[in-house]
Write a protein that binds this DNA or RNA. Sequence first.
DNA 1: TTGAAAGCGCTAACAG
DNA 2: CTGTTAGCGCTTTCAA
Lengths: 352, 352
Amino acid sequence: MPDNAQPGRDRRPTLADVAARAGVSTALVSIAIRDAPGVSARTRERILLVAEEIGYRPDTRARLLRSNRSHLIGVCFGVQHAFHGDLVGGLYDAAESAGYELALSAVTANRDERRAITSLLQDRCEAMILLGPGTPPGYLTELAQRLPLVVVARAVRGVDVVRTADDEGLQQAVDHLVGLGHRRIAHIDGGRAPGAADRRRGYLQAMQRHGLGAEIRIVTGGLTEEDGADGARVLLADDPRPTAVAVFNDRSATGVLDVARTAGLAVPGDLSVVGFDNSRLARLSQFDLTTVAQDAEGIARLAVARAIDRLDGNPITRREQITPPQLIVRSTTSPPGQRNLLARATKPPIAG
Amino acid sequence: MPDNAQPGRDRRPTLADVAARAGVSTALVSIAIRDAPGVSARTRERILLVAEEIGYRPDTRARLLRSNRSHLIGVCFGVQHAFHGDLVGGLYDAAESAGYELALSAVTANRDERRAITSLLQDRCEAMILLGPGTPPGYLTELAQRLPLVVVARAVRGVDVVRTADDEGLQQAVDHLVGLGHRRIAHIDGGRAPGAADRRRGYLQAMQRHGLGAEIRIVTGGLTEEDGADGARVLLADDPRPTAVAVFNDRSATGVLDVARTAGLAVPGDLSVVGFDNSRLARLSQFDLTTVAQDAEGIARLAVARAIDRLDGNPITRREQITPPQLIVRSTTSPPGQRNLLARATKPPIAG
DNA sequence: TTGAAAGCGCTAACAG
DNA sequence: CTGTTAGCGCTTTCAA
């Protein structure tokens, strides 16, 4: 029965082990391993060979301890947010190509942001990237005093921010709907969620710009399906009813779809719906939701670049970097009034 | 313009700083900070006060370097898997209450499992927990030679495993359907995905047990919506058509729902559908999917406990620990043949 | 109860 | 090009 290994009894090979075996000093090994200048090609080769042979791996901690650099960027993310997953993927890529590593710290049901950040701090990361933080701005600016801090997907004054042009996203949604011929376009907002204020503003501006100031209709929503469903119920009671609705995010938009269809309204015939995020949800063929996509990769790249610029002491011009959103048209939007006589039958048949 | 802090110029307070300020030796501070025995209550209090005052935080790396213990458990997870998110939440809780910390390493589009594991290894974690690894068993057993390794949600021989009783899950699904009166029950499997083989086996056994060996019908599927949709199309061409289908997972099950409804079949009237995972997806009111739930919290707890048992050198009896699944009945299952005349109208009205 | 001193694995001066 | 030496911040004997 080949059991698991013992805890730490079988010491890993160290620089000294490699040095002894290669017949050189540890300093030389260090230089060779780091691919730094100052060693002959022949010696380097021999050292690398020996290192490989005995399976030597440098000890990150000792390295950091000595050089006082960790090359570590802390990332705080919500483990349940699909969009954060996209961002983390991009962050890994960007960090790696810049010679940095990521220290991940998740926010979970029982582990709040504060905890996640504290743990990152103890990891001695050199900079920190916070994805959609809910922490109060005061704490964030204080944190930014201690190390380079980049806030992603949330507008905070006084710290470095990378985010989507949320307002522009909603403007695109409204423009699209107006282009289809809609006038009574409502907005179910995100309440106090990050980005909600900007999206609300984008909606307002776009409506004004199209001369539809009189048609403005905002109901309070939130992040979840239930929030969207609640908002939809309010809107369906309106008279006249809106012909289209731009919703805070995809998740909430699915709640709208559900309520609309249950009420016998055809989507998009009776009601056009636009989401936000281009999440996996929106892409599901059951929803096939018209939505506003955020550029996760671009955001990630900018965030890492900014963190490193701070680390390098490069001059910063704009503290807020904003990436353009992109409307993805799918099947939940169409010209208004294409009401289909079968519409009421879209209510699923009651089993039994 | 209050700019961000410099990289590492403003040195953080060290043990020595605290010692100097408190007028004691570093050794004493170390003892006090760690809450170890060997210092008078008065002195300890004073030290802790000073530490607090100058904002001292112990340096994890140096600590580890010296004590040769990291109290770090590495966790490798898929950043896009909702279920992994649940598990990570539980792992944090379990690790914390055992005095360990987690080092997270994500598998992303451009970062494979091998990379994620290697990075964990360099972090000098003492044990490793792999969530649904796709890595070949050979590499896993090799890895288990180096440190305590716990594989979660995948059956691998020769290493410690914690997983749901996948077979039992599918048996519960079949039992439920049989109880409702179904006989032609099909299974769209998960292909080569972790757990797929066991779920397939569970399906087979349950069908045999109910004397429905002649009705066994398995089609190859996979992890995604598209896999489920493909499988559903195959099944719908069957004559006679199955009245119920147990699908590999929720995500794939939504593909089945989509195809069924588009084809004018009522769910559950014409076709009952059972998923697996009890993911957020299943809980959406649009799907309201009957599904088999896994006990994420329990799995997480067992995984951490096992890792620590290995670390402590405790004797292990069973290498494989299996948690019971639980069927969650929602609205996609009902007795068969409750075909509704309106069924064909469930096809969404074509706009325009 | 307290302090001095050694050293974890590594890097960065400097000397040869 | 190579080796020696001195720590990084911490824990841990061992004496006092």
